[in-house]
Computed example of a mutant assay.
Amino acid sequence: MQKPTFLKSALAVGLVSMVALSGTASAADIKLNGSGASFPFPIYSKWFKDFSKANKGIRVDYQSKGSGAGIQDLINHTVDFAASDAAMNDEEMAKVEEGVVLLPMTAGEVVIIYNLDGVEELKLPRDVYPAIFSGEITQWNDPKIAAANPGVDLPDETITVVTRSDSSGTSFVFTGHLSNISADFKAAVGQGKAPNWPSAANFVAAPKNDGVTAQVQQNKGAIGYVEYGYAKLTKWKQVALLENKSGNFVAAGPESGAAALASAEFPEGTLPNSDVPNLIAWVWDPAGADAYPIATFTWMLFYKDQDDDKAAALRKLVGYGVEEGQKIADSMGYIPLPENVREKVLKAAEHIQ
C-alpha cells in the first residue's frame, strides 16, 4: 500500500503557518502539516510551538479551518494529520484506505456568549437556549428569559443569533446537546457540523470562533456559541450560566467541565474494520449537580499506515501532548485528560506505524 506523504510545501497549497518556530523551515528534517478544528487551536498552537522548539528536527504547522475541512483534508491526503471536535463517522473513516487512528487529545466546553449592556449575569434555562437557537424565542424580554433573571433589565429587542458558517465540530457538539435536550430543536435544526439553521432575518453566520465572537461584539443584543478556552483567551465577560440536567445554573470552568466528562464511557471494541481501539465517547447531557451541560473531548486524526519517519514523529508529538501538554490545559481554558484516558491514548498511538 502506498503510504501518504505531504509532497507540496505550505506555500504551494496556500497554507500559512500558524505556529511561530525558531530557526528556518529549511533547518527542519521532518515537517508535519495538519489542519482542522478551531476549538482546540489555542492550546494546539502552544503545544506545536513548544514541541518544535524542543525537537529541532521536527516542524509542526497547523491551519485552523474547521473540523469538516480537516476531515476532508485527511481524506484527500493533503495533510499529515487533522483535528476534529466531531471525531469521524464510519463513512468518513471508510474513505481512508490506510486506516485511521483517532485520539482524544484534550477536552473543553462550549459556551454561549452575549452582548447586552448592563447585564453582567444571564441565566438561560434548558428549555430556553434551545428555543433561542431554533428561532422560537426571538425577544430578549421573553417571559421565559425574564422569569429566570428576576431584577435584570432585559431590553425589548430582537435577539441576533450568531452561528457558525463553516463545517464545524463546535456546531456538532453544540447541536448534539441541544438535540438531546429538546425534541423541538432536533426537529427544526438537528445535529450536524453544518446544521440546518433557520433562515430568519435575526440569524447571522460567521466562520470559526473568532468570526462568531466578532459578530457578537459588533451587534448589541447578539448571542452566539464559542469554545470556552477561546472566550477565556479573549477575556469575554458576558458568558451565560446554563441550566444543567440537575436543574442548577452552572458556569463553564475546569471543575464543572471535569464533572461533565466524569461519566464519559469509551466503547470496549475497536474502530470499524480495524484493530485500533475506539476512543470516541460523547456526553450529550451530563448528570451531576456540578456538571456544565456542554462538554466534549476533541480528537487528532492520523493515518494508521504512515511514512515511517513521520509516524515516529507523530507518536512523539502525541506523547508530548498527553504528558507535557496536559499541564497547561487548565490555564488555557481546557479540561486536562484524566489519567485513565491518557493511558488509553498512549496505547492507541502505537498503531500509528
Rank of each mutant, 00 (worst) to 15 (best):
P207W: 10
N219R: 15
G224D: 05
R164D: 08
I132Q: 05
K56C: 00
G288C: 04
Q2G: 03
G23A: 05
E268D: 12
K3A: 12
A94H: 02
A37C: 14
S84A: 14
A348Q: 01
D61Y: 05
W197E: 01
I30S: 03
D80H: 02
I43R: 10
Y292G: 01
G99L: 03
F81D: 03
F133Y: 12
G190E: 03
K316D: 13
E98K: 07
N248V: 02
G176C: 04
E350V: 09
W47M: 04
K232L: 12
A201G: 09
G321R: 06
A289Y: 03
K237W: 00
G192C: 02
F302P: 01
L15W: 11
D50M: 08
V345L: 07
K208S: 06
Y292R: 02
A231Q: 05
A12R: 14
A264T: 10
L7W: 09
V189F: 12
L11N: 14
Q63Y: 01
A131S: 11
D166E: 14
G151Q: 11
A12Q: 15
V79W: 01
G211S: 12
F81A: 04
V276W: 03
F41N: 08
E323H: 00
A28L: 08
Q72W: 08
A147S: 13
A200E: 13
V60W: 07
P143Y: 08
P40M: 11
V110D: 12
A251M: 06
H177A: 02
P104K: 15
A194P: 00
K344W: 04
K316I: 11
T296P: 01
T78V: 14
S52C: 02
G169T: 11
A348Y: 02
R342M: 13
E157H: 10
D127T: 13
A82P: 08
G224V: 07
F297H: 14
F48W: 12
G68W: 05
A313C: 07
L21V: 12
N209V: 08
K310E: 09
E323M: 03
P286M: 09
R126F: 00
Y228D: 13
A260E: 05
V283T: 10
S167G: 03
D308M: 09
D85G: 15
D50H: 06
A252H: 11
P254G: 00
A27S: 15
I181M: 06
V152Y: 11
V204N: 01
P254S: 05
N89V: 15
